[in-house]
Structures are given as structure tokens and as C-alpha cells.
Design a protein around this nucleic acid. Structure first.
Lengths: 375, 375
DNA sequence: TTATCCTGTGAATCGTACG
DNA sequence: CCGTACGATTCACAGGATA
């Protein structure tokens, strides 16, 4: 379906590739095959969410014993790192051929695959414009306490070459960000709630991306009427957002279940009005300062002695921002609660340091830190 | 200076590599040469901030050893990218040789080089544990308005292999972050103010890293006394923080101006005292206490009734430290798992006893036992 | 009706020691 | 090498149930 017929591509009858591209359509085919059938220099933007090649071990259970529903789908399985690398270079080479000279490509990934992707992008002659960090507001925790919480994903944004022109709607981005330049780190919640496509109570796709992410991408790097290609279409977030923003789209997806869900979804999508624009803005995250940050940044030295307002207890600041007192140790809040035998305690106001003019709550130091670091 | 002499490495007189390493010293040499002279499996941690400027002349050689000329045309760009790749793989291979089996490596970079670095790290058999985002609180704006403000840098943290052990001070990180798991995105201000090394009003090093960054890295992934190697030492942030935190360090740096600045700086750094260096210990590093010991030593009487937090089950303590409930019996862990129909269960936190002020987990009794019996 | 509690869940390379 | 036992381990948000 939708594949180009050679006969239609005669230069004499076709004014531009745009006239023969299969717009606003899902090509249910293998990704690379479908891309090979598309003409060179024909799309304005590519957004790609390729398989991440996760290497998961056994089952993972949460501390409460329940099981984690992991990504175990066949499409994420590759024989080796080298096989994944080869696959990556193959589809990226097609992507480069299909992109117009002034087009740009976005690829999203995690540490499992993004370095292979980025390396291939550079080798193929793309020119990286930015790497963008999607900070997840609500990531899955690290249940076993073995690593840092994997709380972000990385996007690479690249043009077709060092000297290539490209679209960047600087003003739109600045407006979207309350008149401050849009930075390379974006915060969005993961896709859930009403937005998450479900069938029979279970998620249709294990890795559905939030529309807010695609919204910002298209608003930043495409113009109305541009053609956006998504070679790993999944449940069609790209198509839904493109329709809402007045862009044209082409999706490539092999799995029937995903294709059907995407069709329904895009059919139901309505062009966006101005009021909805605001809702796509990321919520302003309030600066949260951990006690440990003050220690790390030299606002409070490890070894400093803190005391409560009535000087009943003396505690020593540890290198990791812990407090120790009489053989007990913990965070400023935990230790305060333990010593008072209370269920909870606000360590910021409970603990004090000796200032020139008497005891002062450590919250004063936090305020200093905020003043020094916030613009 | 400081280079190992072969004569000192005789197994008969040297008990371990640790005895012959040039500690707390700067090796003023070429990075790769100096690394080649270091013994295999000899350092606990490597922090590397490699150059990413492709025109650092001497640093960049083609695989055949010839120098790369000035970068002007397309061909040379690919050529220099390949040369950078070769350089990266060369020093990373040495790093892997020098690292102990249970050591880890950190590499920091930007989108210019981090994908090449990460790809090489994976190809060399390292196992990526996390990629970490340093969100700059005060990044340089994009003056021309042509891209997103480049407001972060990326760190890769990797062990020596998929099954390799490694140090991760989970409790310290959680304490440092106000009792919430430390995430993969870290916010720090860029290095400035008093901390920024200057000479005659101008900065000594263009990319001096903030000490807070190294502080968190070492606190997370090393133990006191560990050896931290920095093959691109620059002005010695790694050395200064290592000294403060009671870690040993080795720096490699070729430029005399940097070496001199680093020496002065580290000389002036003050080590933290013993009490402040104590960080939150993982429970698993405490001596193991069997539940039966508490019974044997009278901390808990046989016949005591225990219950889960929601009082769904009541179990009786046996004289042998077993628990019985509804005709089922077993260890505190096994019975908890069986009753909940869960794959596993931590009996210490699952089971509670009636204290004067409500239910308390039996882990509290274990803590009392530890306090009473540990020196 | 509103406030609170309880439960479910998301791209995850998720343990270790001992016999 | 493998099996078994110990026992360590979760954050934010949504949605439904309860008070």
C-alpha cells in the first residue's frame, strides 16, 4: 500500500517529489524497505524512535514483590552490538538520502543505543546541532539500588551537513519558554493517563512517547505544510501531533496492532487551537535543593557542627550530607525526627549553625545557595 | 618524574601494584605514553575529561601515526573524525587495562565527542552503568539564536564488563539527595567565582570542571583510600577533590602551565577529617545478624507474637528463631514470602512487634542488638 | 462533595554469599 | 558451575475506593 510506482515519477509530469509522496499515510512495511522506496531529498524532517537494543537479564521485581513489565518485544532483539550497529547505519543512510538538503533529523534513545546512533550520524556526514535531554518528571525508580535512577532520554538533532541550512523557529521556542532561550534540557512527564493508548486495560505499545515532546520538536524545527517522516511509527504520536500542527506526515510501521491503533488515534486528532498550546508547555519545575547540594558546593563544610535551637543535640555534617549524633546518623530530616522521637521533622528549620550573630537555621544557607545559583 | 622503573616491579619485593604506583603525583607526560607505563589492574577509578577540539594538533594522529593537518575541506573532516576516533580508542584501551576488575570509569563530554567516546566504550567491552547529565545552572546562552542553548554535558559511567562488580554508594547518594534516589540528571553551576583558577586576570584552563561534580562522582563510586586516575588532569580538580575526600590520585598532564597551577591548588586543599568522611553505610556492609541471635540473646522472647504492618497475619516466634503462622513455619523471610505469595520478602522490615508507641519493625531490635554488641 | 487512602505502573542493560 | 537462602530495594502520578 502506498508505495510509489516508478511510472509516476517522470520529471516531465511531476513538479516536485512532494506531489507524489504518500502523505498522511502509514506504510505497513519493513522500515528499511519502505525507506528505499521513497525518493531522495523529499522530506523536511525525520523523527525516529528506533529500538533501543535493551539487554535485560532475568525478571525484575519491585520491592513490594510485583513484577516489572519490561520491554521484551521481538523488535528490540538483535544478535549482537555489531548487528545493531549495522542496522542503525543502514536506516540512517536511507534517512540521509531521503532528507532534503535543508531538512533535519531527530533520533531519540537511551544510553543503550544513543552512542551508536550518534557515532553513525557523525560518520554519515550529518552535522549535530544539539543533543537534547528529555528529563522525565516521573521516571521508574531503580528498584535494587544498584545505579542512579535512569531519569532521562537523549535526543540528537542534526542537519544534513556543516554548511546546510535548516529550520529553527527561535522565537517560537523563546515564547514557549516564557521569553527565556529554550535550553537543551526539556522536562516532560512520561506518557500516561488519558494519553496512553490502551486496549483491554493494557498498554498498546510499551514505549509510547508523550505528544508534548513531538509538539516541541515540530514547533522548533518545521514549518506548516512540511513533511515529517517517522520510520518507527509505533502508535503514531508523530502523526497525531503533525496533524494537530498542520504538518504532513508519513509513518512506517510493520506491526498490525500498532498500525490500527495509530490510524484510529490520528483520525480522532483535532487541529490545535491557541488555547491548547499552553497545555503543551512543560510545567515549571520548582528548584528543589537537597541538603547535600550545599555540602557539595562548599556552602557548608563536612565536619561542621549543627545544633537544634535549644542546643540539646550536637550533630556533625558528613561528606555525603548526612548528620551524625551519638552513634546515630541520617539525613537532616531523619535524624531530627529520630532524636525527638517524632514521626517527622523539617531539618531545614530544626538544625542551626553558629553564625557571627548567634544560631541561624540552615535554611538560611539554602536561601543563599538559591540566590547564588538561580538566574 | 614519577614514572615507574621496571626494577621496582619485581614480584618478590612488591606485595601489590598499590605499593609501586606513583600516588598523589602528576605525571607530566603524554597521556597515552604515561598510561602505558602504569601496571594493569592497578587503579580503582578513572575520571577522564578528554579534549574534543579536533584541532589539538599533537593529540591527534592518524592510525598510521601521521599528523592531521588543519581541517578545511570535507575530506579532512572525515579524516579528522576518524583520527579522533582512533585517539579515543587508544587511550580508552589503556584505561581498561589499567582499571581493576571491580573499578569504574567516568568520561565527560559534549555532543561533539561523547557519541564517539560512548561507542568506543561499548566496543571495548566496558559495560555502561549510567549516562549522567550535568545540567548547568548558568550556561552560556546561544548568542546567535540558531540553536537551543547548550545547557548540559554528558558523563558516561561504566564498569569493566557486564558481570563486573563495582562500587556504588547507594545510601550516600540517597542521603545526599534528601532521602530520594539520586537521578541521572545532576544540576551544578559552572565553575566560576573563587573556585575558578586565574592568572593575571585570565582563566588558567578553558574547561575547568566544578569540584562539586568530582565530589559527587567520587562519593558515589569510590571508597576512602581508593586510587583515582585522571589522564587529562588539567588544573587538577580531580586531585584536589580526591585529597579532600581521602582518596589517592594520579594525574597525567603535559602542559607545564596546568601542571604548576594544579600543584599549587592541590597543595592548598585541606583533607576532611575522619569523622566527616564517614558516609552512610549500606546495611549490607554491617555484620550480618541472624534472627535467631536476637532470640538466643534475650532481645526477643520465644512466644512473642509478630505481625505485618497491616496486621493481616500474626506469627509466633519459635525458640529456634523460626516463625509460625496458620500451620506454616519458616524463617522470617521465607514465611513472609509464602504468606504474601511473593517471590521474596525481607522479614526484617515485614514483621513488626508491639512497642509502647505502636508497631515497630523487628529491624529496630536488630539495630539495638548491633549498638549493644558492636564496639 | 471533598479529602484521604490505597493500588497500579512506567524503555531497566537492577544481588550476593555460601555450600 | 549451580542451587539455595539471605535479605535489600521505589518515585511520581493517575485513578479508584473509602471516609
Amino acid at each position: 500500500m502506498g508505495v510509489l510506482e516508478k511510472g509516476r515519477l517522470k520529471p516531465a509530469t511531476v513538479r516536485s517529489w512532494v506531489d507524489v509522496l504518500p502523505y498522511d499515510t502509514i506504510l505497513q512495511q519493513d522500515c528499511i524497505e519502505a525507506m528505499r522506496a521513497l525518493p531522495a531529498k523529499s522530506v523536511d524532517c525525520i523523527f525516529a524512535d528506533p529500538p533501543y537494543n535493551l539487554q535485560l537479564g532475568g525478571d525484575l521485581n519491585r520491592p513490594d514483590g510485583s513484577a516489572v513489565d519490561a520491554v521484551t518485544d521481538e523488535w528490540d532483539k538483535f544478535d549482537s552490538l555489531a548487528a545493531y550497529d549495522a542496522f542503525t547505519r543502514e536506516w540512517l543512510a536511507e534517512a540521509r538520502r531521503i532528507l532534503k538538503d535543508d531538512g533535519t533529523i531527530w533520533v531519540i534513545g537511551s544510553y543503550h543505543n544513543i552512542f551508536k546512533v550518534g557515532s553513525a550520524i557523525q560518520d554519515l556526514g550529518f552535522w549535530i546541532l544539539n543533543d537534547i535531554i528529555w528529563r522525565k518528571a516521573n521516571p521508574m525508580p531503580n528498584f535494587k539500588g544498584t545505579r542512579f535512577t535512569n531519569a532521562h532520554e537523549t535526543l540528537i538533532w542534526a542537519s544534513t551537513g556543516e554548511k546546510a541550512k535548516y529550520t529553527f523557529n527561535y522565537r517560537s521556542m523563546k515564547t514557549l519558554n516564557d521569553e527565556i532561550q529554550m535550553r537543551s534540557d526539556w522536562e516532560f512527564p512520561i506518557c500516561g493517563g488519558q494519553e496512553r493508548l490502551k486496549k483491554g486495560g493494557t498498554k498498546v505499545h510499551p514505549t509510547q512517547k508523550p505528544e508534548a515532546l513531538l509538539y516541541r520538536i515540530m514547533l522548533a524545527s518545521t514549518k506548516p505544510g512540511d513533511v515529517v517522516l517517522d520510520p518507527f511509527f509505533g502508535t503514531g504520536t508523530t502523526g497525531a501531533v503533525a496533524k494537530r500542527l498542520g504538518r504532513r506526515w508519513i509513518g512506517i510501521e510493520r506491526e498490525t496492532a500498532y498500525v490500527e491503533a495509530a490510524r484510529e488515534r490520528i483520525e480522532a486528532a483535532l487541529p490545535l487551537d491557541e488555547s491548547a498550546l499552553k497545555t503543551m508547555q512543560a510545567p515549571k519545575s520548582q528548584p528543589r535543593v537537597a541538603f547535600g547540594q550545599l555540602v557539595e558546593n562548599g556552602f557548608l563544610k563536612p565536619g561542621t557542627v549543627l545544633t537544634d535551637g535549644k542546643r540539646r543535640w550536637k550533630a556533625v555534617v558528613g561528606a555525603d550530607g548526612s548528620l551524625s549524633c551519638d552513634g546515630q546518623a541520617g539525613s537532616i530530616h531523619k535524624l531530627g525526627a529520630t532524636l525527638q522521637n517524632a514521626p517527622s521533622c523539617n531539618g531545614w528549620t530544626f538544625w542551626n549553625y553558629e553564625a557571627a550573630d548567634g544560631l541561624k537555621p540552615i535554611d538560611a544557607i539554602r536561601q543563599n545557595y538559591l540566590l547564588a545559583t538561580q538566574p
